Lab assay of single mutants.
Amino acid sequence: MTTFKLIINGKTLKGEITIEAVDAAEAEKIFKQYANDNGIDGEWTYDDATKTFTVTE
């Protein structure tokens, strides 16, 4: 398992979430479901060097 981080730069929600996932594809699926569940819709980026996803509304 690898640790992945999501940085949320939303209009109403900001913060960071860290999860353990098998790979970046699994982490992205989990993070996008979390964002969808919380009404966050924005532009996604991923930095493989730091294993960090960012979503900006």
Rank of each mutant, 00 (worst) to 15 (best):
M1Y: 15
M1K: 14
M1Q: 14
T2S: 07
T2Y: 11
T2H: 03
T2C: 03
T2M: 05
T2W: 09
T3F: 02
T3I: 13
F4T: 01
F4R: 00
F4A: 01
K5D: 14
K5N: 10
K5Y: 12
K5R: 13
K5E: 10
K5H: 04
I7W: 06
I7D: 04
I8P: 00
I8R: 00
I8G: 06
I8L: 04
N9L: 13
N9G: 01
G10L: 13
G10H: 03
G10E: 03
G10R: 07
G10A: 09
G10F: 12
K11E: 05
K11P: 13
T12F: 09
T12Y: 13
T12Q: 13
T12H: 13
L13Q: 11
L13R: 00
L13T: 04
K14V: 15
I17F: 05
I17Q: 14
I17M: 07
I17L: 06
T18A: 04
T18E: 14
I19S: 10
I19Y: 02
I19P: 00
I19D: 07
E20Q: 10
E20I: 14
E20Y: 11
E20S: 13
A21G: 01
A21C: 04
A21D: 11
V22H: 05
V22D: 05
V22F: 10
V22I: 11
D23S: 10
D23N: 14
A24T: 11
A25Y: 04
A25M: 10
A25L: 12
E26M: 13
E26P: 14
E26S: 09
A27W: 00
E28L: 04
K29A: 10
K29Y: 15
K29H: 15
I30Q: 11
I30C: 03
I30Y: 07
F31D: 00
F31T: 05
F31L: 05
F31A: 12
Q33D: 02
Y34D: 08
Y34K: 08
Y34R: 03
A35M: 11
A35W: 01
A35D: 01
A35K: 04
A35I: 15
N36T: 10
N36Q: 06
N36I: 05
N36E: 11
N36L: 12
N36S: 02
D37Y: 04
D37Q: 07
N38C: 02
N38G: 11
N38S: 12
N38Q: 15
G39W: 08
I40L: 12
I40H: 13
I40W: 15
D41G: 10
D41W: 03
D41S: 04
D41M: 06
G42K: 00
G42M: 00
G42E: 01
E43D: 15
E43Y: 15
W44G: 01
W44T: 02
T45W: 05
T45H: 13
T45E: 15
Y46H: 10
Y46T: 07
D47K: 11
D47E: 14
D47V: 03
D47H: 08
D47T: 15
D48F: 14
D48L: 02
D48P: 06
D48R: 09
A49C: 02
T50P: 04
K51S: 04
K51L: 14
K51W: 09
T52G: 10
T52R: 15
F53G: 01
F53T: 09
V55R: 00
V55Y: 00
V55D: 02
T56C: 02
T56R: 08
E57G: 01
E57C: 01
E57N: 01
